[in-house]
Design a protein around this nucleic acid. Structure first.
Length: 410
RNA sequence: GCCAGGGUGGGGUAGUCGGUUAUCCUAAGGGACUGUGGAUCCCUCGACCCGGGUUCGAAUCUCGGCCCUGGCCCCA
């Protein structure tokens, strides 16, 4: 038997309905904040992502050559594509741009819990607003989106400036290495590296930075930085709206294009792969030939959110099974159509079964049966049977539709 | 790329120091039953992940691969 490709999943209808419900809640959060949905191609020129993240990521992507000999790749993330789109056709739109997306991405990695080779991300990009209000809005939207999805999570918010200030005397390579250790909370690795590089005087302030729980402590540890006013304003905006977050100036996110504010979300009930959200301010457009526009965004790992939420029951919509005798078949199609026009899910028998068997089948998957036999056809009525209570009554089609709709409303 | 544990009908399982026709539950299809169902009974369908090796004989032992689960690395 043919297997599905490694790290991919099939979704049966029950799970698909659950996914669509959560997806809708995320999109709706975006909509409430004015973020309109965009869509970019599933595959892009390889160059788009190597320009953003370096050649090293090629081994972790689905890379292929197309029939014209072009180097292509399935997208491993969406931000680069959205910024490419901004450069291509968004530059003349009035700023700021508020965009969101829900898209599948592909990474050639070893699958484990919450990590698949095809996975889905919900994300937003706010392009062209370089203010504390912009930073705060994206964080508040991230919080609203995760909250709306039903996930329970911890939100960490930080800023790169204090850490970069502490490391300002170092050459870029050392800086990056130190930040990588900080990002991983690798204390031993950090200490070893600091000793090797003769930087032991940084050990204490760097450790203290990660422990700071208020913004004012941060500047006691790291000294004054030019971004101080912006940072204080962003955090006071979050506080004014009672956003539940933890200041975390140990977030390094090891990425060169992040310029300032950074934040991460962690599911409370997941294992090793518990980060469900990452975001921050960044500058990317200039890499793709555009202006050096300030941007801010986040991406949510949709599949991890689904794992975190776990099993849950969906609201049940009433289902009508249309049951008929051979002489009622044509009428049954009309009746089924009338239910569907009223927005009610109606399913007809396709197996040429007897009425007993049709009802038996309907009892497993439907809430109501509509019976159409010789009697109903001649009288122009339908028999509506409640499959839960067993009660049934012959009545007009309109009454039957109203009765089923009434149950859908409760 | 690395480590550990796994893989038996669609789902869940029994069997394993090699030995009859691979067990049971469930689901699915049909029938008993052509105008009132979920019960019951009967029938049917359907599996040892793939390949090599050892052997008279392999689901069982062995080697390699694939895939799954969790962890490491990485995480845009």
């Amino acid at each position: 038997m043919l297997q599905k490709p490694r790290g991919t999943r099939d979704f049966l209808p029950d799970e698909m309905e659950r996914r669509r419900l959560i997806e809708r809640r995320m999109r709706d959060a975006g909509r409430r904040w004015g973020y309109r949905e965009v869509c970019t191609p599933d595959f892009e020129h390889l160059e788009l992502f190597t320009m953003k993240s370096g050649e090293g990521i090629i081994q972790e992507m689905y890379v292929f050559e197309d029939k014209g000999g072009r180097k292509m790749t399935l997208r491993p993330e969406v931000t680069a594509a959205v910024l490419r789109m901004y450069v291509n056709e968004g530059k003349v739109l009035p700023k700021p741009l508020r965009w969101c997306y829900f898209a599948d991405c592909f990474r050639y990695e070893r699958p484990q819990k919450g990590r698949y080779r095809q996975f889905w991300q919900f994300g937003v990009e706010l392009i062209g607003a370089d203010t504390a209000s912009a930073d705060a809005e994206v964080i508040m939207l991230a919080d609203d989106t995760l909250r709306s999805s039903g996930a329970t999570f911890d939100l960490h918010v930080g800023h790169l400036a204090p850490m970069k200030h502490l490391l300002s005397g170092l050459d870029p390579g050392d800086q990056r290495a130190i930040m990588a250790y900080l990002d991983k909370h690798d204390q031993k690795g950090l200490e070893t590296a600091l000793v090797e590089k003769n930087l032991t005087h940084l050990a204490e302030p760097l450790a203290a930075l990660g422990e700071c729980r208020t913004v004012s402590e941060v500047f006691e540890v790291a000294g004054d930085v030019p971004e101080r006013a912006r940072i204080e304003e962003t955090f006071s905006l979050l506080d004014s709206q009672n956003i539940d977050y933890r200041p975390d100036f140990g977030i390094a996110r090891g990425l060169d294009y992040y310029t300032g504010m950074v934040f991460e979300g962690f599911a409370k009930n997941l294992g090793a792969e518990n980060q469900i959200l990452g975001g921050g301010t960044y500058r990317l457009a200039h890499l793709f030939g555009g202006d050096d526009v300030a941007s801010c965004g986040f991406a949510i790992g949709f599949d991890r959110v689904m794992v975190s939420i776990g099993e849950f029951e969906l609201a049940h919509e009433p289902v009508v099974g249309v049951v008929c005798t051979p002489e009622g078949r044509a009428r049954a199609l009309e009746v089924a159509r009338a239910f569907r026009e009223a927005g009610i899910r109606a399913e007809a028998d396709l197996m040429q079964r007897g009425m007993g068997a049709q009802l038996s089948r309907a009892a497993k998957s439907a809430d109501f049966a509509v019976v159409l036999g010789k009697r109903e056809v001649e009288a122009g009525t339908v028999t509506l049977k409640n499959l839960h209570s067993g009660e049934q009554q012959e009545r007009s089609l309109e009454d039957a539709i109203a009765e089923v709709a009434r149950h859908g409303a409760c």
